[in-house]
């Protein structure tokens, strides 16, 4: 039963710390079930905009980035644009969930991981978040109580989350340790 191919979306990025776990999960799943269909979701402002191109999986880049901190003009413009980008990205995400029709959506953190997880929750698709850091990021704190499962790296993280969680320990990066 557990060798049947599955379709999944893995959303995450911004920095290598959120992106490489996504690649590690994809590579490990493909080793176990080679005909699984995997689609990555990231932000066009993150490191993944470049790194996805070197992968064989299909991908979607959302036009979304975090809030600008401080009072500079750039931050101000970024924050004014945020609701527009959020809505546009959410519509794109919903369309992707409809057309790709995943069995599960995985979030590995970073601002592009929140919307696919939120869309999957709204559609009743199973969801899993992988939280790498001892203090959970925004997406994890926002959505942990509504996803099916959260995998964490540090026991400490449990203190910040209401939900009962799996303990995954540290994941290795996908950067070819051969």
């Amino acid at each position: 039963m557990q060798n049947k191919s599955i379709k999944l979306i893995i959303a995450g990025g911004g920095t290598g710390g959120h992106l490489f776990p996504a690649f590690a999960i994809a590579d490990t799943l493909k080793k176990r079930i080679s005909d699984s269909a995997i689609h990555f979701v990231g932000s066009k402002f993150g490191i993944e905009a470049d790194k996805f191109k070197s992968r064989e999986e299909s991908f979607t880049l959302l036009n979304i980035r975090g809030f600008g901190r401080g009072l500079s003009i750039t931050s101000l413009i970024r924050n004014i644009l945020f609701p527009l980008r959020f809505m546009g990205s959410y519509i794109k995400t919903r369309r992707l969930l409809r057309t790709f029709s995943p069995d599960i959506v995985i979030g590995t953190g970073g601002y592009a991981s929140g919307l696919p997880i939120l869309g999957a929750i709204h559609k009743g698709i199973p969801t899993l978040i992988h939280e790498q850091n001892s203090f959970p990021g925004f997406t994890t704190r926002w959505l942990a109580s509504r996803v099916y499962r959260v995998c964490i790296s540090y026991h400490d993280t449990e203190r910040y989350l209401k939900k009962k969680i799996s303990f995954s320990r540290e994941i290795q990066s996908a950067r070819n340790y051969r």
């Binding site: 599955i6 590690a24 999960i25 599960i104 899993l128 992988h130 995998c151 790296s153 995954s168 290795q172």
Partner: peptide, 9 residues
């Protein structure tokens, strides 16, 4: 760890 996460998936 990656295998543990895939088990969960």
């Amino acid at each position: 760890a990656a295998n543990t996460i895939v088990d969960n998936i």
